[in-house]
Every structure is written in C-alpha cells, then in structure tokens.
Design a protein around this nucleic acid. Structure first.
Lengths: 176, 176
DNA sequence: CCAATTTAGTTTCACCTGAAACTATTTCCA
DNA sequence: TGGAAATAGTTTCAGGTGAAACTAAATTGG
C-alpha cells in the first residue's frame, strides 16, 4: 500500500526510547569489526613478506595500474585515487623512495608537482603482491553465492554513497 | 553441472598473472573505506556532543545493556563482548572513571577482578547516545530495501566468519 | 603447603595517525 | 605587473594504538 515501513526488520533498532542497544547487532560496529579483521590479516601478509604497510601498498597499487596504462601520477592524484589524505601519501611515498621501490621526478612544467613511478624493483614487488591480494580476496569471497556477491557489490556502493552524504551533513562545512 | 565456477563475476579479480589490480574494485579496500567513513562520522557525533571516543562509547554500550539486564561485568568480559583488546578497554575504562561515568568495585571473591557499572551520570549519557546511534544507523540503512537489509545481515555474518578463519590460518598460531 | 603457572588488569615503548602550520611554487586578477 | 589567494607537498605536534613487559592475585599440582 504505502512506501515501505521504514526498516521494519531493522538490525539493532528497537528505537523505542529507553530500549537498550545491542552492540553486536549495530551495523556500524559490525562493519568496523569486519573491516579491522580483514585489514589486520592483509597487513600481516604484506608486512611479513614485503615489509610494507597498507598505505604503502595502496600507493603501489595505484601506481602499478597507472604504469600499466602509461599514465604517470603525482602524489595528489594518488591521494584522491586511494582516498588517503595527502599527509599519509607523503609519508608512504617517502618510505617507498627509501626502499627504492619508487622514483620521483619533479614536473618540468609545474615544479610543485612530482611524477611518481614504480622502479623496476617496485614493479617486481607489485607483481608479487597483486596475486596474493587477489588470492586473499578470492578466499574471502569464496563462500558467497553468485547472487550474494552481486548484492555485496551493490551494498558497498549504496552504503558508501549514503555514508558520504551523512558524513557531509554531520560535519556542517565551513562558510567563509 | 559442477559446484559453482568459483566466483565468476568476481570483483577485482581478473587473476591472470600480470593483470593489474584495480584498487576501487578490491573488496578489502572498499570495506575499509566504508568502515572508516562511518567510524569517522560516528566518532564526530559522540566526540562533539559527549567528549567520548568510540572505544569509550563501546564500553558504555555493553555496560548499559548489562545494567539493563542486571548483570555486572568486569573489564575482561567487556573486552570479549566488544572485541577490543584488554589494553584498549583498560584505557577506555580509566577515562570513563575520570569522567565520572563509570564506577568500579573490586570483586570480593576474586580481588583481581573489578565490577564495572555505569553511574547515574553515565546511564544518563548512555540514554542520550543510544537514540543518536540508532538514528545514524537508521539513516544509513534507510535507502536499503528489505531484501537488501536482510542480505546485509547475512553478508556481515558470513564474511566475518570467513575472515576470522583466514585470520587464524594466516597467523600460524604458536605451538609451545 | 608452597613453588610454578595462569589470569586480571596496568604500564611502557615504539610507532602510527590526523590536524594544523609551514614552505615553495603557481595562478588569479586589479 | 605584483600582491593575494590557491595548490603541492612536508613537517610538527599532540594524541591514539598494539605488543610486550609488568604487577598482583588466584589456581594448580607435586
């Protein structure tokens, strides 16, 4: 008849005033536990075998793809692509430079920018990590049926979009 | 004919050697972005209005429920319930004690333990936060259809279970 | 019984992290 | 032009965090 009863079988939500909240039914909490669990495992894999932390791996991941496509990237572009902030990228890049996995060349046209590329050593590491990462993802998703996998994709997209909206609406934004 | 082609429409997974990995199709990465986005917003809400960080709120959440059920809890039980480690719990508890939101009484029978309870002030804060938390969750999930919501539940459970298994298998476990 | 082990919880240490301040360069526009 | 504002990237600072060491109490078994 009407639209939809605004989440009837709702997760944690009795939503009657005075009702308690059960943490392990609370979606933000559950997502956080899941995400931390995965990140921890993945960090262990990268860390033990390659001495890389997740931010470093992410930088390499986007640069590896850029390399593949022949498009050099500057730190700022990496930051946008990875959704990390520029401080994190700056630090990850400097560690990767020290490790000799990255090269940096100041842009001729705009000397504030520097193009980042994987060195041969960096690309070799990249080519070792990619299959490991995909293998982990594969094992994680292996118990899901095809329809569940499709829905997971869809849910990640929808929730991320909604969460972005809520983030913006809760952090009022400055009006200078 | 056979089981299932082992994730055909797989997310990030071309899985052919040499193929690149596209970060924004990689499920662990996407989950991390989503979870961070949500945690950040939620932390802002709790932080601005109550001066509480997420670990503190989690401790209060489980103690609030325990209170509701008349079951007092010690720090260790809180740690298990929240999936935080005991260090984190210890710190959160001591901050909450300082804020006067928690009371602690050393257990008569086992003087290593201490029962933790929300003070009246703590319970008052708890009762203010719960609706805010549920409201945030509600808004986050509001765009989902009923079937999507049910699938979300199921996916969180399945993935968490699988991730736990993978975590164990990647961190060999000690054999003393 | 009492030494060895286990358990509850705290402290230490070394590192990570985000926000804000800062430098260097470029762009904008009066 | 040339000074104000914007942009790329780094550094600083003030916490937060986990692993490991530590304290205190309780349990175990010889």
């Amino acid at each position: 008849m009407s639209k939809k009863p605004s989440r009837l079988p709702s997760p944690a939500a009795p939503a009657n005033p005075g009702d308690p909240l059960q943490l392990d039914l609370f979606v933000p909490y559950r997502l956080s536990v899941l995400s931390n669990l995965i990140s921890h495992t993945v960090a262990t894999i990268y860390g033990e075998r390659f001495g890389l932390a997740i931010p470093e791996w992410r930088v390499m991941a986007v640069l590896g793809l850029a390399q593949h496509q022949g498009t050099p990237m500057c730190a700022n572009a990496v930051a946008q692509r990875t959704e990390m902030d520029k401080v994190q990228v700056s630090r990850a890049v400097s560690r990767l430079l020290t490790l000799g996995l990255l090269g940096r060349t100041v842009d001729k046209a705009d000397r504030r920018k520097a193009n980042l590329t994987l060195t041969d050593a960096g690309y070799a590491v990249y080519q070792q990590i990619v299959p490991l990462a995909l293998q982990y993802e594969g094992e994680l998703l292996d118990t899901l049926e095809t329809d569940e996998l499709m829905m997971l994709e869809r849910l990640l997209d929808k929730l991320t979009k909604t969460a972005r909206g809520l983030s913006a609406s809760f952090q009022p934004a400055e009006t200078p």
